[in-house]
Design a protein around this nucleic acid. Structure first.
Lengths: 182, 182
DNA sequence: TCAATTAATGAACTTAGTGTTGATTTTCAA
DNA sequence: TTGAAAATCAACACTAAGTTCATTAATTGA
């Protein structure tokens, strides 16, 4: 992070520009020219940082998941306890990056973001519940996708629940299903 | 469907070409030129049918979901029973279009496919379980995403379970969670 | 089977964004 | 303050997009 301020600033502005445009259209239709015009950055400057739009997109995504991993790994190393709130730090982190996540999980987002989130959840659930039979695999997939759904809905409504509440809610529906709520 | 044979043929070849290319790369990177070269179709012909790659993609997707809707609606109209296999016709239809669905649900696929599948599942679950409080919303989102996860994992493994078995599995984990399997 | 219709082809063309270069200006860190 | 590095600007060749039109081929249905 000990970077030239100009570099940080340029990338930050370009990132905001891309996210902003992605609220309106899919990445497929977004051009370098468009990103730079909105950011009021010279197009040549863009190429000093990124190969093309997708390269930029990937770098932003990678940065996000590196951050996520760093934050959560350090947390979980101190707390191996199998609580019903073990997903809380994840929900917290996603809430802190709410706007970004909403776009990435939207129809204009990218499958790779969702897939990476699923990967994280998979690792988490294996850590917590273990990996015995391959029979469990289907259930695990149900559950990790389910969590993404929960996250998506939570972020897109008013986010009125706290991360702790959401973690408990997730844990409850994972373990017990929805029967009692019907 | 009472179309000129040439039209059907051209579109079919272009579709195969697109799906085939999508196995290797994301739709973002696919050009009209590339699709036409693989299909050995004149590039001008492409534009007689589609506006651009995304338009083509959307049309294929729309066609798929129209078919899905037609097949399943007619089925459900005769069977309003709330069985634990009410998702069976969906699983059957997806299995019949296995290759297509695998690509669309993969990292090279598009969010809109997943979203449309989610929409269908949402309608289904509301029909079956009702829509009382908004409190249920989170649970419903968990469940519909969970089903997509189940579908994805099922199609990408050996598809050894039958659609009926998958429907029962889904219903079970929706209602009762995974506690008993741990 | 034939005639009218319609789709596909091929070539030419404009347009627009891409990615690069090199000279110049601005900003930064130490 | 100064040397280093980043951002700007203008110019460039290049590639795919999208359109047009004359020509060829295939289809339908009478």
């Amino acid at each position: 992070m000990a970077q030239d301020r100009r570099i940080r600033k340029t990338r930050q502005i370009l990132k905001q520009s891309l996210i902003s445009i992605m609220k309106e259209k899919s990445i497929k239709h977004i051009t370098v020219k468009e990103i730079c015009e909105k950011a009021d950055i010279n197009r040549g400057t863009f190429y000093l940082h990124y190969k093309d739009v997708y390269d930029m997109f990937e770098q932003i995504e990678t940065e996000f998941f590196n951050q996520l991993k760093a934050v959560l790994d350090s947390y979980h190393k101190q707390n191996i306890r199998l609580e019903d709130t073990h997903l809380e730090p994840l929900f917290s982190f996603l809430l802190e990056n709410k706007d970004f996540c909403i776009v990435m999980l939207s129809v204009h987002g990218d499958m790779s973001f969702t897939k990476q989130l699923l990967n994280y959840l998979y690792e988490r659930i294996v850590t917590v519940y273990g990996k015995d039979s391959s029979k469990l695999e289907h259930y695990y997939f149900f559950v990790i996708y389910g969590c993404v759904g929960l996250i998506s809905n939570w972020l897109n409504t008013d986010t009125k629940e706290t991360p702790v509440q959401m973690a408990q809610l997730a844990e409850d529906v994972i373990l017990n299903g929805i029967r009692k709520y019907l």
